[in-house]
């Protein structure tokens, strides 16, 4: 998948601006940022889930297996969604229908995409539950969502997403609602499934720890723009954008003694605020005069992309 210059607006407020990234089979791309930075909107736009809302795609192309999926008809997109690409969401309780049994919800998905009978589909549903490591899958098919724990529900969501062997999985904060021990299990499961099937994964998260542990490459978003993108190892070893650097040091670490966190000052701007120049300059400790007047271009250094006039190593 290749996303080129994607821009999204609500009314006259641009929310996502010129976002470009690409994702390869078998790799995980992380998109990280704080609330309101546009990371979820980007993924919803890719999935075509913004139609019929106030939100408009103003420009950009999303090339998936050679076709621009923003241009194809609704029915052609339907064929792609769910079968070639699938999505899992943060809250497994609200994404599952509470009045249908787990088995019926998985079967619905299988019947949509495959010409099989109900009995065969039920059998496949049990296999899927086994693949996501749910014990005793045959009897679990008869459970309702409320009878399962949060971690189990997320496993069911993953099973539904995997029903038609997608080549791309978008996971939007898949573990945010879960306890830390369960989160570790779900992340391990996603990793195993990815290795098994060779699909590409876009993982959206606000948690740098989760990103660091699961992704090959990362895009850091701030106020609708990708301010830094490179491989995960490079990002954490050598962050160039002051925002990335600030995020990394503001996480309280359970493995070292710290007395005070180096917090980024100020607050996340709201979408209707207009900020001239670099969107981060009011909160940036490296900002100089031209940061407030001139928006930085995307600069490439080896495989490391960043948008900053005074990247960290140069200024420190």
């Amino acid at each position: 998948m290749d996303v080129q210059n994607l821009s999204i607006s609500v009314g006259n407020n641009p929310i996502v601006r010129n976002v470009s990234f690409s994702i390869e089979a078998g790799k995980t791309l992380g998109i990280v940022g704080e609330s309101g930075c546009g990371k979820s909107l980007t993924s919803l736009a890719i999935m075509g889930l913004l139609e019929g809302t106030q939100v408009r795609l103003t420009s950009g192309r999303v090339i998936f297996e050679g076709t621009d999926i923003l241009k194809v008809s609704v029915s052609e997109r339907r064929a792609l969604l769910g079968s070639r690409m699938a999505m899992i969401f943060q809250e497994p309780m609200t994404s599952l229908n509470p009045v249908y049994r787990i088995g019926d919800q998985i079967v619905e998905m299988i019947l949509q995409h495959e010409p099989v009978g109900r009995t065969a589909a039920m059998q496949r549903a049990a296999d899927l539950l086994r693949r996501v490591r749910i014990p005793d899958p045959e009897s679990r098919l008869k459970s309702f969502p409320h009878q399962l724990s949060g971690g189990m529900r997320q496993r069911v969501m993953i099973a539904i997403a995997l029903a038609s062997n997608p080549v791309l999985l978008i996971a939007d904060e898949p573990t945010t609602a879960l306890d830390v021990t369960v989160q570790a299990q779900i992340l391990d499961l996603l990793e195993e499934l990815k290795t098994e099937s060779g699909m590409g994964v876009i993982l959206i998260s606000h948690d740098l720890g989760v990103i660091a542990q699961t992704c090959h490459s990362v895009a850091v978003m701030y106020r609708g723009q990708i301010v830094e993108a490179c491989s995960t190892v490079e990002l954490f070893a050598n962050p160039l954008h002051p925002y990335t650097g600030g995020l990394i040091v503001s996480i309280p670490d359970a493995y070292s003694n710290v007395d005070e966190l180096n917090a980024i000052p100020g607050r996340v701007p709201t979408i209707d605020e207009r900020i001239s120049g670099c969107a981060f300059h009011p909160r940036c400790h490296c900002a100089k005069d031209n940061c407030s007047t001139q928006a930085p271009q995307t600069i490439q250094r080896a495989d490391h992309l960043y948008q900053c006039h005074y990247p960290l190593e140069a200024s420190s």
Partner: peptide, 23 residues
Amino acid sequence: LLDSIPQIDPAKRAPKVATLGEP
């Protein structure tokens, strides 16, 4: 609990703990 925290620094990562069910 400590071993389940996602770590940025690979050197601090605990070895994979066996999956042991949910609370």
